[in-house]
Amino acid sequence: MGKLVEIRWHGRGGQGAKTASLLLAEVAFNTGKYIQGFPEYGPERMGAPITAYNRISDDPITIHSNIYEPDYVVVVDETLIKSVPVTAGLKENGAVIINTSKSPEEIKKELNYNGKVYTIDARKISEETLGAYFPNTPMLAAVVKITEVVSVEVFLNDIEASFKHKFANKPQVVPKNMEAVKRALEEVKGNE
């Protein structure tokens, strides 16, 4: 069995954490990987904490349980770290990637975790490039950069093609989304 990467996403209902996990699955799929992308469903509604998962591997994946010891944890809404044990089970040699304007050092103090912490201000990037709060695109780029589930170069080509397809009716937003992606790739920063 080749390297299996397991990722757990924490977000709030309506923020698109599930969609982001499916986008990541799609990006990895497009480079020939075996993937799983699945949410944990409950009675949650808008604003309630939700969890989604990814498995990404070079070999077929048969395991069908939730992920309890992830390699990476992605936090789409930083307010969750007060109410949800986001680092539970996270491998010590893994990493947290969190959407926040704070520095990795500040976040690390708030988390009970000894591994790496990466921050990305997805709100600022999306508001400045897209004109509204759509954290998914910058979060996705940051996750690709940190997890290396696909190479950045391949990701850039693939995501541009997918934006062109998705926004076929309004091609003017494609450069803005690509700008968000590129800024996220540059601005995600870590506390090693």
Partner: peptide
């Protein structure tokens, strides 16, 4: 096929 586990999980 299993609800959610298979119905809602994206796979190859």
């Amino acid at each position: 096929y299993d609800g959610f586990i298979t119905s809602h999980a994206v796979e190859n």
